[in-house]
Design a protein around this nucleic acid. Structure first.
Length: 278
DNA sequence: CTTGGGACCTGGCTGC
DNA sequence: TGCAGCCAGGTCCCAA
């Protein structure tokens, strides 16, 4: 499922092809994906607009348009954006023709993805927390946002208002890298742990971007190739396998109704135990 | 205010 | 083999 590294990869790989091109036609096949008004209006407003730039905020992909509006795309669970696909695609919810002969296809089997056309990007993304790869994402900032939260640290990382762009897979990977048990109360993290976690989040996300994202489920890069970040996962989706670091069997629990994977050897704290851990 | 749980959605998997 | 039923999870919404 597309999280920050996947969306960043899509941004990186679409940009050289689409920046400077104009929308010449728009086809909405499922009206539900348009979050801003009727599809016809969406289509009329978008046609003729030039893409001035493509950026990302959390898991949102932002197309800056020539009339100062923005096209925003969120892929949610199963969405993907394909550039000039050769084969006919299933589950196409919208398609876009552009100058230069390009054809951009929004595909989404589960219909959770959404697109917006807005004057002000903030009207969609204003509640997001800091960008984890930005300069302002510091241990103190993370601490400020979770120090009064009694929820599990895993839940806190999934809260897009705490930090933007982390989803189920990279939350598990970051907590493993930081050697923090996912059920640890967010408010119980020490300053050292906050610093380690902050660093681990950045490292895990940067390494995944290097791998062009993780192709689990339906994620593919715009030109149809897979990412390889899933090959480097230490715990995510590896329940029952031995930990590559200590050999313990990777366990799976449910937190906030999400499958959560961790290594009981490397992330040893038991929920409710007194701190500090041994 | 915080927290937890359900709704949304459908392909793929499990089990009878 | 066929089919019912459950599961995955990002975000929003609502209730406690």
């Amino acid at each position: 499922m597309p999280e920050l590294p996947e969306v960043e990869t899509i941004r990186n790989e679409l940009s050289p092809w689409l920046i400077g091109e104009c929308f010449t036609d728009v086809c909405i096949l499922d009206a539900r994906i348009v979050a801003t008004g009727p599809p016809d209006e969406f289509r009329q407003k978008l046609i003729g607009q030039k893409i001035e730039g493509i950026s990302r905020r959390g898991k949102y992909l932002l197309f800056k348009l020539s009339n100062a509006t923005s096209l925003i795309v969120h892929l949610r669970m199963t969405g993907s954006l394909l550039l000039d696909p050769i084969d006919a695609q299933r589950y196409v919810r919208a398609s876009f023709d552009l100058t230069g002969g390009h054809h951009l296809v929004f595909r989404d089997s589960r219909r959770f993805g959404r697109i917006w056309l807005v004057d002000d990007v903030d009207s969609v993304v204003s509640k997001l927390g800091p960008e984890p790869l930005g300069d302002d994402f510091r241990p103190g900032v993370l601490g400020q946002r979770i120090s009064r939260r009694s929820i599990a640290v895993k839940s806190a990382l999934l809260d897009q208002g705490v930090v933007a762009g982390i989803g189920n897979m990279y939350a598990d990977e970051a907590l493993f890298a930081a050697r923090i048990h996912p059920l640890t109360r967010a408010s119980d993290l020490s300053e050292d742990e906050l610093e380690t976690l902050c660093h681990s989040i950045r490292t895990v996300l940067l390494e995944a971007i290097e791998c062009r994202g993780a192709s689990v489920d339906t994620y593919l890069r715009p030109e149809g190739a897979a990412g390889t970040a899933q090959c480097s996962f230490k715990v995510a989706r590896r329940g029952g396998e031995p930990c590559a670091v200590c050999g313990s069997k990777i366990e799976r629990v449910r937190i906030q109704n999400r499958g959560t994977y961790y290594c009981p050897g490397c992330q040893p704290i038991e929920p409710g135990s007194s701190r500090p851990r041994a």
